[in-house]
């Protein structure tokens, strides 16, 4: 399986949680801290490196706050 990761631009995130329900491995959660705008941003919790870069979380995001990367070509 392709290995991937996501980069969440915390300052773009409005904490709407739409991204948190679609991850097949339940890796996207709302953080406990606040961003500059005062929202709790979503964050990737992936200690075991399960993210495949499937893009589902990013496709749900209304604010293009998530960039998705995959390893290799």
């Amino acid at each position: 399986m392709a290995r991937g990761t996501i980069l969440i631009d915390e300052d773009r995130c409005k904490g709407c949680e739409l991204c948190t329900t679609v991850c097949p491995f339940d890796l996207v959660h709302i953080a406990n801290h606040f961003n500059a705008k005062g929202y709790r941003p979503s964050t990737l919790v992936d200690p075991q490196g399960k993210c495949t870069g499937c893009t589902l979380c990013a496709r749900m995001c209304p604010d293009v706050a998530i960039i998705v990367y995959r390893e290799g070509a």
């Binding site: 290995r3 893009t55 998705v68 990367y69 390893e71 290799g72 070509a73």
Partner: peptide, 8 residues
């Protein structure tokens, strides 16, 4: 490994 943005 090189990583590549697939969604931006």
């Amino acid at each position: 490994m090189e990583r590549k943005a697939v969604f931006a």
